[in-house]
Lab assay of single mutants.
Amino acid sequence: MPSETPQAEVGPTGCPHRSGPHSAKGSLEKGSPEDKEAKEPLWIRPDAPSRCTWQLGRPASESPHHHTAPAKSPKILPDILKKIGDTPMVRINKIGKKFGLKCELLAKCEFFNAGGSVKDRISLRMIEDAERDGTLKPGDTIIEPTSGNTGIGLALAAAVRGYRCIIVMPEKMSSEKVDVLRALGAEIVRTPTNARFDSPESHVGVAWRLKNEIPNSHILDQYRNASNPLAHYDTTADEILQQCDGKLDMLVASVGTGGTITGIARKLKEKCPGCRIIGVDPEGSILAEPEELNQTEQTTYEVEGIGYDFIPTVLDRTVVDKWFKSNDEEAFTFARMLIAQEGLLCGGSAGSTVAVAVKAAQELQEGQRCVVILPDSVRNYMTKFLSDRWMLQKGFLKEEDLTEKKPWWWHLRVQELGLSAPLTVLPTITCGHTIEILREKGFDQAPVVDEAGVILGMVTLGNMLSSLLAGKVQPSDQVGKVIYKQFKQIRLTDTLGRLSHILEMDHFALVV
């Protein structure tokens, strides 16, 4: 994948999101292997301009796509893939009243899908469409860049269908997702969380590099694949309309690839034109409109599966009536509230959605109805927002919020430890010299600072030695090549209790 991002070429006709291997024109390309080798690009942008032909009021008969309808489940399912879809609609009884809503608040519980998330729908649909058009064949390999849930859905379907599955996901995604993927037989590649989507090191860039190296491999490409919004247009939206008897006044959905909100909203605009569509985008993402909503100094966020630093091709923002931004604290607070007060075992993005819903639905009156999409299960986040310690460490809970008995030293300040200034190293000294210094002084790690004293990161003896043994660096290389740029900081005025929580999850903390 090139470091400079080429513009994806656009073909003359058809839909841009065809499933299957992508040609340089962004659509299915038939021909000899030699032709494909000559024409197939190194990668295709996940934010390529959409060429979708959908228009409100256009006859369904003019759609270029294969459409399906929700099917009634048999008493005995032939395999677990038949437990994807037909998820329950559940009334939220307490939270709406707590925040003064007059309307009825309903939750579409997508964590009841077989793999635990709304992404099971698009995973199965992308595979079925690729099999139907002859792209996927027995023994082929599926590769997908994902925040985890699409990966789980694909790995689940691949396990049943017999495909090899490789999932490329950023490091910030939970260990629970990784464990589930491994249990399903998927191979996992992790990428830096802070890598831009168009960087060769991003999950998108690495996935395309693997595709170019592995024979008979395919990126189904949830960011561009029409099967993504079509899955929701054909099934999720129809289920909502049936469950609500066609009567709903507002739908609120958090947005990642945009397939969920695009597919549902398009069908609702056709069948229930008075329904307002509300999009939820986390602070630090750029999906919301108008652009002024996205202006923030924050560039990272903890909530998973929603928000991006690019506009995915499948996201149709014209069908969203209003956007709201959400933050991590309210997302996790509301997710825990949904679990504790409503018994809905949902993930953090569901918290984002409901946090926005109780604001947006203030305009609705008694007798009206708001539906929220709860995308995934708490299963993926047992060591994250479900953990009091994690919430404390991230600053989303305060010590006084917890009532468990603490040891005698818990409320003492870090400054009472009488710490001395640490050994520091410059980023320009060599790895070999740094190892000598650390061994001589008896230290395992040291902060790396520039000549102005600005902290650049941390270097550890173990990481340097393993990097040297693996051949990633040489003793003569500058130590700046092996620094940890993500590390926890703590102030002298913070409590030892807070430091204790940090050290339970990290090997060190830097006192500043």
Rank of each mutant, 00 (worst) to 15 (best):
3 S>H: 10
4 E>A: 10
4 E>V: 11
4 E>F: 05
5 T>D: 03
5 T>N: 11
6 P>H: 08
6 P>T: 11
6 P>S: 12
7 Q>W: 03
7 Q>K: 11
8 A>P: 03
9 E>R: 09
10 V>R: 11
11 G>M: 03
12 P>E: 09
12 P>F: 03
13 T>L: 11
13 T>Q: 09
13 T>W: 02
14 G>I: 12
15 C>Y: 11
16 P>N: 06
16 P>C: 03
17 H>W: 13
17 H>N: 05
18 R>D: 14
18 R>E: 12
19 S>C: 06
21 P>F: 03
21 P>E: 11
22 H>A: 05
24 A>Q: 12
27 S>D: 11
28 L>V: 14
28 L>D: 10
29 E>A: 12
30 K>S: 06
31 G>M: 06
32 S>Y: 11
32 S>C: 03
33 P>W: 10
33 P>M: 10
33 P>E: 14
35 D>K: 06
37 E>H: 07
37 E>S: 15
38 A>E: 10
38 A>D: 12
38 A>C: 13
42 L>H: 08
42 L>R: 14
42 L>Y: 10
43 W>T: 08
44 I>N: 13
44 I>M: 13
44 I>S: 13
45 R>G: 11
45 R>M: 09
46 P>F: 02
46 P>H: 03
46 P>L: 03
46 P>Y: 00
48 A>P: 10
49 P>D: 09
49 P>K: 09
50 S>H: 05
50 S>Q: 06
51 R>L: 04
51 R>T: 08
51 R>Y: 09
52 C>A: 01
52 C>V: 05
53 T>R: 09
54 W>V: 06
55 Q>D: 11
55 Q>A: 07
57 G>Q: 09
58 R>E: 12
59 P>R: 06
59 P>G: 05
59 P>A: 06
60 A>Y: 12
60 A>E: 10
60 A>M: 10
62 E>V: 07
63 S>M: 03
64 P>H: 08
66 H>P: 08
66 H>I: 11
66 H>Y: 15
67 H>Q: 09
67 H>K: 10
68 T>M: 03
70 P>F: 06
70 P>E: 10
70 P>G: 11
71 A>Q: 11
74 P>G: 08
75 K>T: 10
76 I>W: 07
76 I>V: 04
77 L>Q: 12
78 P>I: 05
78 P>L: 14
78 P>R: 04
79 D>T: 14
79 D>V: 14
80 I>G: 07
81 L>H: 06
81 L>G: 14
83 K>V: 04
85 G>R: 06
85 G>T: 01
85 G>S: 06
86 D>L: 03
86 D>A: 11
87 T>M: 00
87 T>V: 02
87 T>L: 03
88 P>M: 04
88 P>N: 04
88 P>R: 08
88 P>F: 04
89 M>P: 03
89 M>I: 10
91 R>S: 08
91 R>Y: 13
91 R>E: 10
91 R>T: 11
91 R>F: 08
92 I>Y: 06
92 I>H: 03
93 N>E: 06
93 N>C: 13
94 K>H: 13
95 I>Q: 00
96 G>N: 11
96 G>R: 15
97 K>R: 11
97 K>L: 13
98 K>N: 11
98 K>F: 05
98 K>M: 14
99 F>V: 06
99 F>T: 10
99 F>M: 13
100 G>A: 10
100 G>H: 02
101 L>N: 01
102 K>Y: 04
102 K>S: 02
102 K>R: 14
103 C>N: 01
104 E>A: 12
106 L>S: 07
107 A>W: 01
107 A>S: 07
107 A>L: 03
107 A>V: 13
110 E>P: 01
111 F>T: 04
111 F>S: 00
113 N>C: 07
113 N>K: 01
113 N>H: 08
114 A>S: 14
115 G>D: 08
115 G>T: 08
115 G>L: 07
116 G>K: 13
117 S>L: 03
117 S>I: 03
117 S>T: 06
119 K>H: 00
119 K>F: 02
120 D>E: 09
120 D>Y: 06
121 R>N: 01
122 I>Q: 00
123 S>H: 07
123 S>L: 05
126 M>W: 03
128 E>W: 08
129 D>N: 10
129 D>F: 03
130 A>K: 00
130 A>L: 04
131 E>C: 02
131 E>Q: 14
131 E>T: 04
132 R>H: 11
132 R>S: 13
133 D>I: 05
133 D>K: 11
133 D>N: 13
134 G>I: 04
134 G>H: 08
136 L>A: 05
137 K>T: 09
138 P>T: 15
138 P>Q: 06
138 P>H: 09
139 G>M: 06
140 D>M: 08
140 D>G: 07
140 D>Y: 07
141 T>V: 14
141 T>H: 09
141 T>P: 09
142 I>N: 01
144 E>C: 02
144 E>K: 04
145 P>H: 00
145 P>I: 00
145 P>E: 03
145 P>S: 04
147 S>N: 03
147 S>W: 00
147 S>F: 02
148 G>N: 06
149 N>C: 02
149 N>E: 03
150 T>M: 01
150 T>R: 00
150 T>Q: 02
151 G>A: 02
151 G>L: 00
151 G>V: 01
152 I>T: 04
152 I>W: 00
154 L>E: 02
154 L>T: 01
155 A>Q: 02
156 L>Y: 01
157 A>W: 07
161 R>H: 09
161 R>V: 08
162 G>K: 00
163 Y>R: 03
164 R>N: 11
164 R>W: 06
164 R>V: 07
166 I>E: 04
166 I>W: 01
168 V>E: 02
168 V>W: 02
169 M>F: 02
170 P>Q: 01
170 P>D: 05
170 P>E: 06
172 K>G: 02
172 K>F: 02
172 K>T: 03
172 K>D: 02
173 M>C: 06
174 S>M: 01
174 S>E: 03
174 S>N: 02
174 S>G: 01
175 S>A: 10
177 K>T: 01
177 K>S: 03
177 K>H: 02
178 V>I: 07
179 D>V: 05
179 D>M: 02
180 V>A: 09
180 V>C: 07
181 L>D: 00
181 L>F: 02
182 R>H: 09
182 R>T: 06
183 A>I: 01
183 A>L: 03
183 A>T: 10
184 L>H: 05
184 L>R: 02
186 A>W: 00
187 E>R: 06
189 V>F: 03
189 V>R: 04
191 T>S: 05
192 P>N: 06
193 T>N: 11
193 T>P: 11
193 T>E: 10
193 T>K: 10
194 N>T: 11
194 N>A: 11
195 A>M: 07
195 A>W: 06
195 A>E: 08
196 R>G: 09
196 R>C: 08
196 R>Q: 11
198 D>P: 07
199 S>Q: 08
199 S>N: 09
199 S>V: 02
200 P>H: 08
200 P>R: 12
201 E>K: 09
201 E>I: 06
201 E>V: 04
203 H>T: 08
203 H>E: 05
204 V>D: 05
204 V>N: 08
204 V>R: 03
206 V>N: 03
206 V>A: 08
207 A>P: 01
207 A>H: 00
208 W>S: 04
208 W>E: 06
209 R>I: 09
210 L>N: 03
211 K>V: 13
212 N>Q: 13
214 I>M: 09
215 P>S: 05
215 P>T: 04
216 N>D: 11
216 N>P: 06
218 H>T: 09
220 L>A: 05
222 Q>N: 02
222 Q>K: 04
223 Y>N: 02
223 Y>H: 01
224 R>A: 09
224 R>F: 03
224 R>Y: 02
225 N>C: 03
225 N>D: 01
226 A>T: 09
226 A>C: 07
228 N>I: 00
228 N>A: 04
228 N>L: 02
229 P>L: 01
230 L>E: 05
230 L>C: 14
230 L>G: 05
232 H>I: 01
233 Y>W: 15
233 Y>E: 02
234 D>T: 05
234 D>H: 05
236 T>I: 08
237 A>S: 06
238 D>Y: 10
239 E>I: 00
240 I>S: 00
240 I>K: 01
241 L>C: 05
242 Q>T: 10
242 Q>L: 13
242 Q>W: 04
243 Q>A: 09
245 D>K: 04
245 D>H: 10
246 G>A: 04
247 K>F: 03
247 K>T: 13
247 K>M: 15
247 K>D: 03
248 L>R: 02
248 L>T: 09
250 M>N: 00
250 M>S: 00
250 M>E: 01
251 L>A: 08
251 L>V: 14
252 V>D: 11
252 V>S: 09
253 A>K: 05
253 A>V: 09
253 A>P: 05
253 A>S: 07
254 S>M: 05
255 V>Q: 07
256 G>R: 00
257 T>V: 00
257 T>F: 01
258 G>N: 05
259 G>F: 00
259 G>E: 02
260 T>R: 03
261 I>S: 02
261 I>C: 09
263 G>P: 02
264 I>N: 12
264 I>T: 11
264 I>Y: 02
265 A>S: 15
265 A>I: 02
267 K>R: 09
267 K>F: 12
269 K>S: 03
269 K>N: 07
